[in-house]
């Protein structure tokens, strides 16, 4: 499977517009048009820099691998080879994606301020949920985490905030604690 982890129509397609020729858009995509404005080029520097930085980091760490056995092509050989590959791929990314531009189809969906706040709060709730795992009863913290997350994502009223978390908690308790006997 092609690794489009996100589903839904590709960039430029409107699912509510029946007049749009979706088939043509897929077979002859507009993705071949390059975006060359400065903001997008600068953004493309980030993945290139991370790729090169990771390669350099691994090169440094690979120097510290100590082997008790003297063998040809020892433990640092393969990581060093991969680290150099990463550096080469990063440099090529600068040449291709930064200097030339990036395909329109490869641009991500735009972020929203509301979305960033919601994601940060999600992280806080999930970390709190994990830290309380061995402190409070599993069903209690699962119910509380479900209520908090549902409220955060816009659920209002007794059904989303009480019934839905209760069902999820009961289902998890039955599946993991009763059926699979996980020590929760």
């Amino acid at each position: 499977m092609n690794d489009h982890t996100a589903t839904g129509p590709p960039a430029g397609l409107n699912p509510t517009d029946p007049e749009q020729d979706h088939a043509e858009a897929h077979i002859h995509p507009a993705s071949e048009v390059l975006v060359t404005d400065r903001a997008h080029r600068l953004r493309e520097l980030v993945p290139a820099a991370v790729t090169i930085g990771l390669g350099v980091l691994v090169l440094v760490l690979a120097q510290g691998i100590r082997s008790g056995v003297r063998v040809e092509l020892g433990p640092p050989f393969w990581p060093t080879m991969l680290a150099w590959s990463l550096i080469v791929f990063g440099v090529l990314q600068v040449g291709v994606n930064v200097l030339r531009g990036v395909s329109r189809a490869n641009l991500p969906d735009p972020l929203s301020g509301w979305g960033i706040g919601r994601m940060l709060l999600t992280a806080v709730i999930l970390v709190g949920y994990l830290l309380l795992w061995n402190v409070l009863q599993f069903w209690l913290i699962t119910f509380a985490a479900c209520v908090a997350l549902t409220a955060l994502y816009g659920g209002r009223g007794w059904r989303p905030l009480l019934v839905f978390p209760a069902i999820v908690t009961a289902l998890l308790h039955f599946l993991f604690v009763v059926a699979l006997r996980v020590n929760l």
Binding site: P75, W78, L82, L86
Partner: peptide, 29 residues
Amino acid sequence: SSGRVLKGLAAGAFGLLLATVGRDPITGD
């Protein structure tokens, strides 16, 4: 991974690097 060949290669190399964490498959270091 159409149009993302370089990033796909980098991702593949990253995955191969993740697999090197732990014990060496030949010497056990």
